[in-house]
């Protein structure tokens, strides 16, 4: 359970399985006893960070090369400095993706789901299970390749921005089933 708690920090692949098993089992038990006393946070799997970093490199890497080579050949080598721009983006983006990935975490409490995210612009969302209208699990081709699936919660309010971008598919399905079940039990409508 503690592993699940600091999963975002010590991101190894084994964390996925611990958070899936332990986090799910103990989440309800501890939280119902004391809803205020520190929820049990789970982080996102490391695969998401890998995917995002790969996408960053796939897009900006060739762009850097192109920005260095094309003006360099056409207008003289000095113009190759344009390559510094995408390179800087790449070098900034790499750690920023890491920080952003670490900032995402969620906690299933007895009666509501907590999602916290953001480094500079922090946002924390609480959705009571009874208000859930729809739980959606989505997974694009790239995400599938990395073994990831996103979970999105919909309430009657469109402004509710409760999504968890990348989860282990098994965990995503477990979460979906649990949320649906809890949502039905506590159903409250509008």
């Amino acid at each position: 359970m503690d592993d699940a708690g600091h999963a975002p920090g010590g991101g190894t692949d084994s964390d996925d399985s611990t958070s899936t098993d332990a986090g799910a089992g103990t989440g309800t038990g501890t939280d119902s006893a004391d809803p205020r006393g520190g929820p049990v946070w789970s982080g996102l799997p490391r695969g998401l960070l890998r995917m995002r970093r790969l996408l960053l490199v796939v897009w900006l890497g060739p762009l850097t090369v192109a920005a260095a080579v094309v003006p360099g050949l056409l207008a003289g080598p000095v113009w190759g400095v344009f390559a510094l721009l995408p390179l800087a983006l790449l070098l900034c983006g790499w750690p920023m993706l890491g920080r952003n990935w670490r900032s995402w975490r969620y906690a299933e409490r007895a009666d509501d789901l907590l999602i916290s995210r953001g480094v500079l612009w922090r946002q924390e969302t609480v959705v009571p299970y009874g208000r859930m209208q729809l739980v959606e699990v989505t997974s694009g081709p790239v995400e599938r390749h990395f073994g990831l699936a996103g979970v999105q919660l919909h309430t009657a309010a469109a402004a509710t921005d409760a999504r968890i971008p990348g989860l282990d598919p098994a965990e995503a399905e477990r979460l979906r089933d649990r949320l649906t079940e809890l949502g039905e039990a506590r159903s409250a409508g509008l």
Partner: peptide
Amino acid sequence: QSVRLAQGPWKRFRGLADVHVDTG
């Protein structure tokens, strides 16, 4: 329907935050 807390960098520096309450 849901409650959100939002805090940008400047607000964090000043120790402030907004609380949004979403309705149906």
